[in-house]
Design a protein around this nucleic acid. Structure first.
Lengths: 203, 203, 203, 203
DNA sequence: TATGAATGAGAATTCATTCAT
DNA sequence: GATGAATGAATTCTCATTCAT
């Protein structure tokens, strides 16, 4: 490997600035983070940020891309762990909610992502679309196996993502959290069989 | 009535500024709207905005509250039109998606609302919580009638709201929109009976 | 005239900012003037400068254009006052040196203009070229009347302008100035008959 | 000699930084050159510049002094080559214009020098004054020999320098250059006998 | 010696808010 | 009441200078 010591240090600095950025974005929101905030959080001077990133936008963009990459890997693995659609949904729900709990900063970033306002929409959406695409292919597999009704898979993926997200959000704002297992079960069942009571089957 | 002519004029001005604010927020996003933008859109001078509102934040906050009030009425009426839970869900989905299509500005405002970032969280949430509360009572009614499984009603309300929102958002970004009826049906069924194929009932 | 009171005030403000800019440019040099300098000199807040000009560059550019316009008129009039080339040169020299003495700020601006460095070269040169063009046409007239040797007129114009400029500059840096009349005479004669003693004419 | 090996290396480094500085000043202009520019051009690290010079200003100042020294020698030699004033002017004009053509970087530096703006004025003027002093003594010699009219010699020196400079500048901005010999002849004659046609001598 | 990462003062620009007319 | 000119705090980005390695 041609990885010099300098490059390692560079990677390290760059990463710690990205991590600082993630924390402040989660506190103040994407649009309200200043370069000074990021620098302070990272414990470096303002000018240092510009040694590793071209601009404020560059920091934020790279912060999001890196975080999402990690997240996408996690979800891919969760999907791989299940063998039926039901199991896969459960795995995804669990992975995502647990990740959100641990990485609240990332969760807030993820939320900011869905926000479709302004010119930054497309950029932000790139990573969000990738996430949806993962779920779409999971659904398509299930459709082939006759595990789910052949609704447009993208609609299903969106619905799935949105439910997970908002239940996760709700958990974050609650003081006394429900057991995580209950919410995972709720979402899995909500997705798989809806919420209506089964209609009576005439004998 | 103690409503003087002055008060009527005041109401009118105030309202037209709020309407202008809604339009510009929808175009530029909550955080990027300037007071000058609002004044221009309303056809008044910048200083005039400050005669009717304490600050930029005040304009935006009141704009959101007022808009949500109309929306809440709409949803209440939709709920009233159905007699079963299934019908009510359908009515709510339809009302909300149609309203979003017509009032894209409001929809974007609604989206900005769910975003829980920064110090604006609580303020924004006030109206959002009201909306969820409406759905919660709809669900509770259904629970009493044994129409839905007795999951925590708030979880169900959140899931319902989130699916409607994200399907609505998806519709907005599509060039060739699917027929609205299909999406309404999709959401209703997604909510009521999930997406899994019914398990085989042994004879 | 459709000149409203507002427009007059606007013109006045704009002009006083330009005048302030001219003074600070003359003190600190084109490249070292800050917007804050200009604002302070004009007795207004920094933001006010941006009400009347798009950017720092805009202030400086407009300042130069306006000043040069006045200067060009002055030179045109001086040329008009003479009837022979010799008289015209004298008038131009006199007008220019006197103007430089009175408007030292402008003079320094004029000097900055000839400096051909950087990307701003062309912009700066626009006004300088106009000035040279005035002198070129004065020379061409003289060539037609056989008053001057038919050297390339542009070379002559440049030489003329450069001598006037540098003598003017020299005067500015002297504590005990020579009588202005002597310098005017010197330049006129330098231009018209050079400095060599006449060669002896053999009888 | 007390010249240690270390001192030689020091001289060499110092010189190559000065040469680099001259090149970048000529490309970007005095005020827009950064220390990083100079270091890059010299192929050393930014910190190294500070081992040989006190500050950015110090580099630029020394760069100018050294460059002018070479130039002064050149002019002194040119003066030495002529025997009459006319010849000396011709030699100086030729030497200077040729040098400018070859060393455009120096020429731009020379131009920047004459610019009398800001606090840099005095510093810059030191070398410029030396150049003028050379010409003054050339003129004084000619006055003693009755070759030129006894105008104040400094005025003549300034006029001479300014014409050479601006004709040189003009040459640089022209795409199709005139033959250099023609411009040398023009300047020599302009200086020596002016541009007016000789007056008729009555028989 | 040489390096170049880190620093932070300083500059341009924007915009919420005030206030004289 | 209505206006919009004026203000200056806040923000992004640059770059001369320092200093640990």
């Amino acid at each position: 490997m041609a990885t010099t010591k300098g490059e390692i240090v560079e990677q390290f600095r760059s990463q710690s600035i990205r991590e600082a950025a993630m924390r402040v974005v989660s506190r103040k929101g994407y649009d309200h983070v200043t370069v000074q905030d990021i620098a302070d959080e990272a414990g470096v001077a303002k000018g240092t940020v510009y040694l590793y990133f071209k601009s404020r936008e560059d920091v934020l963009e790279k912060t999001m891309s890196f975080s999402f990459e990690e997240f996408h890997i996690l979800i891919r693995e969760a999907i791989g762990r299940g063998t039926t659609f039901r199991e896969r949904v459960e795995q995804v729900v669990q992975a995502q909610i647990e990740y959100f709990e641990q990485q609240q900063e990332f969760f807030r970033l993820y939320l900011a992502m869905a926000e479709p306002l302004g010119e930054r929409r497309l950029r932000k959406h790139a990573s969000y679309r990738t996430h949806i695409a993962q779920l779409v292919s999971m659904v398509e597999m299930a459709v082939e196996n006759d595990e789910v009704l052949a609704q447009p898979p993208e609609r299903i993926a969106i619905a799935l993502a949105s439910v997970i997200r908002d239940i996760g959000l709700q958990r974050m704002t609650e003081k006394n959290k429900r057991p995580i297992a209950e919410d995972i079960e709720f979402v899995r069942d909500f997705i798989c069989r809806g919420i209506a009571t089964p209609e009576e089957k005439p004998a």
